[in-house]
């Protein structure tokens, strides 16, 4: 089930990144919101892994090159603007994808139907903040523009075909672009115009090619589990 694995890795890695915000959020209400999103994603990852094998073996005992998540989700949190640009780009991809999967008769359908409801809220939350940061103060506008532009090159990868994934990448991409264009415009932000795929790394995450920060993230995530082989927790 390479499709399930890819989606599970997306969800786990993004959940982990959001978990890094705990204790650092700009306002208490947002601590609670970010944790809710992280917990939804972790739940999705666990359900998806269960279709493939043992969740902890998959999460803790694979090497970096065996992970199939897109590079977008492994990008470091940066400031609040980077985190929400990442949320916006990713949720706007995940929602139509899960909706499409929910309509198929694949193994993923029931799970996708449940997850789509969660992601609908994630996307809503991301739009809410994109508007406020984009059309807030001069500083927030500049930061949000910078974040949207910086992460732009990781968005093409979202629509590379994934083996076994019953969804039309071209249709997803078209919907995604309409969505993003609309939100950024309302937020008084400019749609970035750079390439949406990195040069050598086209489609990389799905093939197990990641960015440097990912290795460090995994080292931290897996260290304790790997230090006690065979232990139960």
């Amino acid at each position: 089930m390479s499709a399930a694995l890819a989606l599970a890795d997306d969800a786990l890695v993004l959940s982990h990144r959001l978990g890094e915000w705990a204790g650092h959020a700009p306002v208490l209400e947002e601590e609670v919101a970010l944790a809710n999103i992280a917990l939804d994603l972790l739940g999705q990852a666990r359900s998806l892994y269960s279709l493939v094998g043992d969740e902890d073996e998959l999460a803790y005992l694979r090497e970096e090159r065996a992970f199939r998540n897109v590079q977008l989700v492994e990008q470091p949190n940066g400031d609040f603007a980077h985190t929400f640009a990442r949320q916006l780009y990713f949720s706007a991809y995940q929602l139509p994808l899960y909706r499409a999967l929910a309509a198929t008769d694949s193994d993923l359908a029931p799970l996708a139907a449940k997850a789509a409801k969660e992601v609908e809220y994630h996307l809503d939350h991301a739009r809410t903040w994109t508007l406020r940061l984009g059309d807030g103060t001069e500083e927030s506008h500049a930061r949000m523009q910078r974040a949207c532009t910086a992460l732009w090159k990781f968005t093409g990868e979202l629509f590379q075909p994934v083996e076994g994934l019953e969804a039309d990448p071209a249709a997803l991409e078209a919907e995604w672009l309409v969505d993003i264009r609309e939100v950024l415009e309302r937020a008084t932000l400019t749609l970035p115009d750079g390439p949406r795929l990195g040069g050598w790394a086209a489609g990389a995450g799905r093939q197990g090619l990641h960015t440097e920060p990912f290795g460090r993230m995994l080292a931290e995530m897996q260290h304790l589990h790997r230090s006690h082989p065979g232990a139960t927790w």
Binding site: L12, H16, G19, E20, L39, L42, G43, A45, R46, Y49, E55, D56, A59, Y60, M217, E220, M221, H223, L224, H225, H228, A231, W233
Partner: peptide, 10 residues
Amino acid sequence: TRAPSLRRKA
């Protein structure tokens, strides 16, 4: 970020 199982992490 270092919780040793996904259940414990959640």
